[in-house]
Amino acid sequence: MPNANTSAIEFLQTRRSRPAKTLGLPVPTRDALLPLLEMAARTPDHGKLEPWRFVVLERAALQRLAAAVTSHGDTAGIHPDKITKMHNQFAMGHLAVMVVESPKPSAKIPAREQTYSAGAVCLALLNAALASGWGANWLSGWASHDPQFCANHLGLAPHERVAGFIHIGTETNTPPERPRPDLTAITTWIEA
């Protein structure tokens, strides 16, 4: 039997994202956030391309984005309910890290694997925050998929995409456990 890290196993067996709307102050300082980013950057990265980057969105930036979502959404014809939901995600936030998928040209590493790596960074950052005692949630939303919004308001280059917004703060209430997948329905064993 391998020498198990029982603390890590217990964390992974019980980890639970916290709804972003329930995250309050305080949020990690820059000094507290840097180790979380370091942990996230240890994610699988075939070819060592680092096909992702971090953009830390502090309160004023989130407020600016909330206003931009409203004006851009109206102009783009986005349904009002979707505009409100996206607006609130930014307006209610105190700190979020935008993980940007920034693929690199590579003859060896397919773009799809670089996308997977960016997604893995999101989960690694989420878990690093949760394991460090913060509340955290991984969100996206229509604005993160809108190329014009991403270019004009998030500063993304044409080849970049938002992999996720990881909201981090102090948990104000513990959410109830939610149903988990039925492993027998989603697992296939191949013996030969």
Score class of each variant (00 low, 15 high):
P2S: 14
P2C: 11
F11V: 13
Q13E: 13
R16T: 08
R16C: 09
A20T: 00
P26G: 06
V27F: 05
T29P: 01
T29Q: 03
R30V: 12
L36C: 06
L36W: 01
E38T: 03
A40V: 00
R42A: 00
G47M: 01
L49C: 06
F54Q: 13
L57W: 00
R59K: 11
A67L: 10
G73P: 09
G73R: 02
G73L: 06
D74I: 15
A76F: 05
I78W: 09
P80L: 09
P80F: 08
K82S: 11
T84H: 14
H87P: 07
N88R: 08
F90T: 00
A91N: 04
M92W: 08
H94I: 01
V97C: 07
V100C: 07
E101M: 11
E101K: 06
S106M: 04
A107H: 10
A111S: 12
A111P: 02
T115Q: 13
S117Y: 05
A118K: 07
A120Q: 13
A120M: 15
A120W: 04
V121E: 08
C122M: 10
A128W: 05
L130T: 03
N137W: 03
W138R: 03
W142M: 04
H145P: 04
C150W: 06
N152D: 15
H153N: 12
R161W: 10
G164E: 05
F165C: 00
H167M: 08
I168Q: 01
T172L: 09
T172K: 12
N173M: 13
N173A: 15
N173R: 15
P175I: 05
E177K: 13
R180N: 08
P181G: 09
P181K: 07
T184A: 15
A185R: 15
T188A: 13
E191Q: 14
A192M: 12
